[in-house]
Amino acid sequence: MSIPQPGASGRGPASGSAAQQAPRAHGFPSPARDYLDGGIDLNRELVRDRTSTFLMRVAGNAMAASGIRDGDELVVDRAATPRHGSVVVAVLDGELVVRRMVFDGTVPGLAVDAPPAALGSHTRSAAGPGTVILESDDGAAPVVLPAAGPEGLRVWGVATYCLHRL
């Protein structure tokens, strides 16, 4: 039985010219690791790379339709690539906010409380300078896209799990 070592998760230096410096498993395989069966380690299951993963606490219910509620904890991976439909932590007005990432073509935007199913069909509507408002045809909440400003849209990390207390 062989268990992957935490420090050597698939992520790390990319291939190419630096391939010879690809990440290694740390140290010799330890005999101790071969019979490590002390139950399920949530760090191992929920954390892809412990150097880039942070926990955050949610304040507010704007993402409740996505199952993210006030007081929940999010597992956030700074190194993950946000895609259409990813739940992300973004920087808005100096604040960290959780939103769903949407792409209007190649323009990234942030949606409030729009479950992935509602993201497919949007119609563009009038908007003030710097913003585009998309409304979905099923009446879901409007999607606000901050147009790329001087810094563009800043994604802090991608939320990968939500811990919800029952």
């Binding site: 942070f54 926990l55 955050m56 606490r57 949610v58 304040a59 507010g60 219910n61 704007a62 993402m63 409740a64 993210i68 006030d70 904890e73 999010l74 956030v76 932590v89 604040e95 960290l96 906010v97 959780v98």
Partner: peptide, 14 residues
């Protein structure tokens, strides 16, 4: 203590 204390996690607004 954002990363070492569970009661101190960074707050993300929703």
């Amino acid at each position: 203590q954002y990363t070492t204390r569970f009661s101190d996690l960074p707050v993300v607004r929703a």
